[in-house]
Amino acid sequence: MEISGLISAIVIGIVIGVLGRLVVPGRQRIGVLWTIVIGIVAALIGSAIASALDVADTDGVDWIEWLIQIGLAALGVSAVSRVKLR
């Protein structure tokens, strides 16, 4: 992976993490770094799932892929927030 691909993965991960955090109701007791890490992981896994479902490469914006990634980020934020409470 080139440096531009790594930087774009981090930027997309930040966006996905923030959107996933906004979807989860209530206060989440996780930091910004956890949000970024969850967003990056959710973006990578969501892209793989979208590719497997054959909805990743469409003309224009891949809305289904984005929804999958945001949903995974919301699940990740919720899971990490619950673990951090204990």
Rank of each mutant, 00 (worst) to 15 (best):
V11Q: 04
G39M: 06
V55N: 12
V11H: 05
A79V: 13
V24E: 05
G17L: 04
V80A: 12
D57M: 03
L33G: 15
V18Y: 08
I49A: 13
L75R: 05
L85T: 03
V41Y: 01
V37P: 05
S4D: 03
T35M: 13
T35Q: 04
G26F: 00
I30E: 10
I12R: 10
L53Q: 01
D59E: 14
D54R: 08
A43R: 14
Q28A: 07
K84H: 13
I12V: 14
P25K: 09
V80N: 00
V18S: 10
A73F: 02
A79T: 12
I49P: 06
P25H: 00
I38V: 07
A9K: 03
I49Q: 04
I10G: 14
V41K: 03
G13Y: 03
I10T: 15
Q28V: 05
I36P: 02
V24M: 05
V18T: 07
V11A: 04
V23C: 03
I64C: 05
S8D: 10
T58R: 05
E65Y: 01
I7W: 06
I30H: 10
I3A: 02
V41N: 04
L6E: 03
V37D: 09
G20H: 01
V15H: 06
A56Q: 04
I64F: 11
V24L: 01
K84F: 10
L53T: 03
I49S: 11
A74D: 09
R27E: 15
V61F: 14
A9C: 04
A79Q: 07
L19F: 12
S8C: 02
Q69M: 15
G31L: 06
I38S: 00
K84I: 08
T35L: 00
I7M: 07
R82F: 05
V11D: 03
Q28Y: 06
A50R: 02
A9M: 01
D57K: 13
A43L: 14
I40C: 11
D54K: 15
D62Q: 07
I68Q: 07
L67W: 04
I38R: 07
A73R: 01
W63D: 13
V55H: 00
I70M: 11
I30Y: 00
I36F: 03
G76Y: 05
W34A: 15
V55G: 08
D57Y: 10
